[in-house]
């Protein structure tokens, strides 16, 4: 039983790490903001859940498991919400594909009174 739990915990942790790294590659390599956001937003929730479940299986202490469960539930709420808010703010501010590649130093005028 113990070996089964250990192996499943390792599998969860490794899957989570793989998803994390794929999200990281996505944020570095994808061409524009919306695709980057898609890479991060999709992998982030699942990777967090995987790693936290792996830690839960790794640990027999009940109180620590409750805390991990709280973190898991909160990140399940928070990270999709943050992604949604970010995407809709970008949409609302007419942040379309065409002005995407402009660096923001050009988008903003230096403040001179």
């Amino acid at each position: 039983m113990d070996t089964f739990i250990n192996i499943s915990s390792s599998v969860f942790l490794l899957t989570g790490s793989f998803l994390c790294i794929s999200g990281g590659v996505g944020i570095l390599r994808f061409p524009d903001f919306y695709t980057r956001m898609h890479a991060v937003g999709v992998t982030e929730t699942l990777a967090t859940a995987m790693i936290l479940i792996g830690l839960m299986l790794h640990n027999p202490d009940f109180f620590v498991d409750i805390k991990l469960m709280i973190i898991l539930i909160m990140s399940l709420f928070i990270s999709p919400t943050a992604s949604h808010a970010l995407a809709s703010a970008a949409m609302r501010n007419d942040f379309s594909q065409k002005n995407n590649e402009k660096p923001d130093s050009e988008q903003v005028k230096p403040w001179n009174p």
């Binding site: 903001f33 980057r36 990140s75 970010l86 590649e101």
Partner: peptide
């Protein structure tokens, strides 16, 4: 690297989530 504001917000958000995981680990 940016290049835009929203990329930076995205990076900070991602960094924060990863910090949560790092602290737990």
């Amino acid at each position: 690297m940016g290049p835009t504001l929203y990329d930076r917000i995205l990076a900070v958000n991602m960094f924060g989530t990863k910090t949560v995981l790092l602290i737990s680990l």
